[in-house]
Write a protein that binds this DNA or RNA. Structure first.
Length: 477
RNA sequence: CUGGGUGUGGCGUAGUUUGGUAGCGCGCUUGCUUCGGGAGUAAGAGGUCGCAAGUUCAAAUCUUGUCACCCAGACCA
């Protein structure tokens, strides 16, 4: 069993979770701070994770018939103002361009905080007939929101994301699309990121500006706080009416389209860190790890060691993403480095191993060591990668399950959150006043109304009136 | 935006109360010895003390302003 060593550069998560997070983000070389307030530099290792996320999701989008497009990054102010709720929701956090070249612009340009209005404007131009529907578009881009305070990945002024925007003939089609995309996100979180999620609908108060209904997946971080992973909105025909997106149906009748939008962002990477990471640093699920196995040659100046390491890389390259650390650091240094970067498997190979036709495999998540014959390496490696992926999910699921409790009244709710951050299931009458009261008194918000309904009681946790919705409450990032 | 904290070589810091011209650890460079959990040794390089004004013979230190980052709130993917 591996000896415990202390990596002094990373603050213990029990001591200061926020500081731990910042340390991991920096020490794992995911990002660097930039000279612009609230903006981060995604370094190669951090960007590689994003590229894998893109690759996985993009293929899912393509499989379900979506096409990628690219919209401009500027939105004329008048366009943003067409949908009332939407502009009210986003106006306070917009960056605005007022000068182009040396000239004052006649109309101000908003740097996109999201692109609904641009898609709508375009859809109004290209949709005429039921034959033009559905339109299933997606774009990968960055958006800008002038946030008050920022944290790497979780909240930055500019962030990378994908936004799907679709237009459908009927309300049913739009609702089906909304749920379909939510499920794609949920599967991605659980199977690729190894993050268990709660799927549900947002309350009126928490839904997207301009949406008829917002659905979301919520996940629990190691400190018990919630992170909204992905959202999927059903716009109904609200935007269509504001932008005049109409088509002629089979009966020669003019109808409004029904729209959806859905997105996930680099915030997910923050989720990966806070769900799987530990006091030794990042811990990546194999399915999203840019390097799945790192080979560390021991005594690599000795005859044959480096050659053997390179042979092994070749041998394993078809079943895993493999790198060798050939730097002239000492092995102990390399072990720690590999752990901070969360590389799922480490392979140690030295003169003694070569004599015995073996090597040492070490799991990042449990730090268990295995002595493995080189003749059976492929099987061992692929088996372990699968097992690590599964174990990380199971561990996160256990943490989630153990930290969901129920409350029947305000006193219970208050007592629970006075001890620690968890998810609390409680009934909700639907009146926004109750949601506001809970937020003011306990500083928690409604995360979602889960699809998996449980009748905790028949009365609202806040006002005690008749209640039929169950809400998951929690403190959110 | 509100409240608290911090800015000194790449990183972490001492020095600030009581002004006197910047010290330490890590890292970096080169050589030699090392290499199975953050190696040893020798020699070296690297700092307009966040930025800008001001006070002073003299400012990292005092004054004012400003910027950035961190933490806790309010807002959000």
């Amino acid at each position: 069993m591996a000896k415990e060593i202390k990596i002094d550069a990373i603050t213990d998560m029990e001591t200061d979770f926020a500081q731990w997070y910042t340390d991991v983000v920096k020490k794992a070389e995911l990002i660097d701070y930039s000279s612009v307030r609230g903006c981060m530099i995604l370094r190669p290792y951090g960007y590689a994770i994003w590229e894998l996320i893109q690759k996985e999701l993009d293929s899912k989008f393509k499989q379900t018939g979506h096409q990628n497009v690219y919209m401009p990054m500027f939105i004329p102010e008048s366009l943003l103002q067409k949908e009332k709720d939407h502009v009210e929701g986003f106006a306070p956090e917009c960056a605005v361009v007022t000068i182009g070249g040396q000239e004052q612009l006649t109309e101000r340009l908003i740097v996109r905080p999201t692109s609904e209005t641009l898609f709508c404007d375009h859809y109004a131009n290209i949709i005429e007939s039921y034959r033009d529907l559905p339109k299933l578009y997606n774009q990968w881009c960055s958006v800008v929101r002038w946030e008050k305070t920022t944290r790497p990945f979780l909240r930055t002024l500019e962030f990378l994301w994908q936004e799907g925007h679709t237009a459908h003939a009927t309300a049913e089609d739009a609702e089906e699309e909304t749920i379909k995309m939510l499920n794609i996100y949920a599967d991605f979180f659980e199977n690729v990121l190894a993050i268990p999620v709660i799927k549900g609908k947002k309350t009126e108060r928490e839904k997207f500006s301009g949406a008829m209904a917002t659905y979301a997946i919520e996940s629990m971080m190691h400190d018990g706080k919630a992170l909204q992973g992905g959202t999927s909105h059903n716009f109904g025909d609200g935007f269509a009416k504001a932008f005049g997106i109409q088509y002629t149906d089979k009966n020669n009748k003019l109808e409004y389209v029904h729209q959806t939008s859905w997105g996930v962002s680099t915030r997910m990477i923050g989720g990966i860190i806070m769900v799987h990471g530990d006091n030794n640093g990042l811990c990546l699920p194999p399915n999203i790890a840019p390097i799945q196995l790192i080979i560390i040659p021991v005594a690599m100046h000795k005859e044959g060691v480096l050659e053997k390491a390179r042979n092994i890389k070749e041998q394993l390259s078809s079943i895993a993403r493999v790198e060798i650390d050939e730097t002239d650091k000492t092995p102990g240094w390399k072990y720690s480095e590999a752990e901070m970067k969360g590389i799922p498997l480490r392979l140690e190979i030295g003169p003694r191993d070569i004599e015995n036709n073996q090597c040492v495999l070490v799991r990042r998540d449990t730090r268990e060591k295995y002595i493995v014959s080189l003749s059976n390496l492929e099987n061992e490696v692929s088996g372990l990668l699968i097992k690590i992926q599964k174990d990380l999910y199971d561990k996160a699921k256990k943490h989630l399950d153990e930290n969901i409790v129920t409350a029947k009244n305000m006193e219970e709710l208050e007592n629970i959150f006075s001890v620690k951050n968890v998810f609390v299931k409680a009934m909700y009458c639907g009146d926004e006043a109750c949601e506001i009261e809970i937020k003011e008194k306990i500083a928690v918000t409604s995360r979602c109304m889960p699809f998996e309904f449980e009748e905790i009681s028949t009365k609202c946790v806040c006002c005690g009136k008749e209640a039929k919705n169950m809400v998951v409450w929690g403190k959110s990032y």
